[in-house]
């Protein structure tokens, strides 16, 4: 799958194993950071990230806060929330803030891959639409000339 993926979770072991498995499943452009702050720094420097997988419960800047920041600065990036346990509230909160979906930890790899693909497709669709809109604007501009 051709997707630029960023994993954010304070559980290093979990992130590493999950990364290995995802790479094996064909996701080459996979990056991992271990806190909300690092996530924001990384996104600052690497503008090409498509999907972020974000743990809700993290020390320091937590998942919800990070999600809010991401959606303000990079509204096109799709975020999949990972929650430690199924508190409906945090899920609802995340969805309201614009998360693509949420998954409960530990999750099925297939399910996760599925969600990543959907998220990636959604992002591409968005970008496509934006492109089309820009094109339209430009062509309409031209016609006026």
């Amino acid at each position: 799958m051709k997707v630029n993926l960023l994993l954010v979770d304070d559980e290093k072991d979990f992130v590493e194993t999950l990364s290995k498995r995802l790479r094996k499943k064909g996701i080459e452009n996979l990056y991992a950071v271990y806190s909300g702050e690092e996530c924001m720094d990384f996104l600052n420097q690497n503008k090409n990230i498509d999907v972020v997988i974000l743990d809700v419960k993290m020390p320091g800047m937590d998942g919800i806060e990070t999600l809010r920041e991401i959606k303000i600065k990079y509204p096109l990036i799709e975020v999949i929330m990972l929650t430690g346990h199924g508190t409906v509230e945090s899920a609802i909160e995340g969805m309201k803030l614009g998360a693509f979906d949420y998954l409960m930890k530990p999750c099925e790899l297939e399910e996760l891959l599925d969600k990543i693909e959907q998220a990636k497709n959604k992002k591409e669709e968005h970008e496509q639409k934006i492109l089309e809109a820009q094109m339209k604007e430009k062509t309409s501009h031209l016609s006026w000339d």
């Binding site: 194993t17 430690g84 930890k105």
Partner: peptide
């Protein structure tokens, strides 16, 4: 305790999955 256990369990499951893969 349940909360604390959840993370190791997640890792365990991932590790098992990884082993299976390789």
């Amino acid at each position: 305790i349940a909360h604390e256990i959840n993370n190791p369990v997640a890792i365990m499951v991932e590790e098992a999955g990884w082993l299976e893969d390789i």
